[in-house]
Design a protein around this nucleic acid. Structure first.
Lengths: 154, 154
DNA sequence: TCGAGAAAGTTTCAAATGTAACTAGTTTGC
DNA sequence: GCAAACTAGTTACATTTGAAACTTTCTCGA
């Protein structure tokens, strides 16, 4: 060890947070374009529909917790969807501040049209991977996510 | 097959684009907070510094290509860094429209302080993974990235 | 060698986003 | 049973972002 200690260099192209960000942003942008073009939905609106489609009756705050969206973003997305009559609010009887959200028939119909598109996009994204690889990838992402936000028990 | 054909349901928590987005946004936000608090740098500014630290002499457009940032974002980041005397522009002799960018001594010093922090953050993020897992994760992300943007030959 | 078209980078302006303040309703503790 | 503290959701405002227009410089073809 006669050399001076050199700091390990940073190779951005190999740096995990950077790669995650680039991939995620590219994917999000592509998806956003499609949803906007075909359905006039923003990513946030679509995310709200996806959550309510899966779990009708959740409130805005519950969506906020699950979707990693902040409550203002949820509020705006919900407002837009209600205006377009894709989503309905129903006041919670026990608590006047909250409302339970559900898809209207029109919202449900749109949801049913989007789901296969979303799944086919996921399939396209992982076209180079086999089933086991996809599972592995999701598991690895989970391990990282667990470190970053330890208490996501959704 | 006597049942009606049911569409495959969408489980958002299992949907890869969604998971990528949530993880990436969480990670980016955390990193942004640190860089902002300790160095007064935005993510974009740090990204520019990281690229120039690795490859001095690149132009704004070249950064834009590599970093998946659009040229306006690069322009603004560069302007901010030049104002703070972290980055220097030198007009390309052969082409008056471009300038080649490099870190000033101050920029270099800051870069050398950030690199170990960045690497330790990456290590923290993958704390639950062993070395082979990390390589595997990067390889899998690459496979997806190759599908999404086939021509990234950086 | 001149003019049309393209490229680098900046500026402008509108839309999206986040923070903080706000309203309305609910719970708690005394 | 009521005031203080708290929560759900919205609104307002400031900042960030992105798209398009613009300026300057360069390239190419006639």
């Amino acid at each position: 060890m006669t050399e001076t200690t050199k700091t390990k260099p940073l190779r951005l192209a190999d740096f995990l947070p950077y790669r995650l960000s680039v991939l995620s942003n590219t994917v999000s942008k592509r998806i956003a374009e499609r949803y906007e073009a075909e359905f006039g939905l923003s990513i946030g609106q679509w995310r709200v529909m996806a959550i309510i489609g899966e779990c009708p009756g959740l409130t805005a705050t519950e969506i906020s917790d699950r979707a990693a969206m902040d409550k203002v973003a949820v509020s705006r997305a919900v407002t837009g969807l209600v205006e377009r009559d894709l989503l309905a609010r129903k006041a919670t009887q026990s608590d006047g501040r909250r409302s339970q959200l559900s898809l209207t028939p029109g919202g449900e119909a749109m949801y049913q049209r989007i789901v296969p598109l979303a799944l086919s996009y996921e399939a396209e994204l992982t076209a180079a991977l086999n089933g086991a690889d996809v599972d592995q990838l999701k598991a690895l992402l989970d391990s990282c996510a667990a470190v970053v936000s330890p208490r996501r028990l959704v």
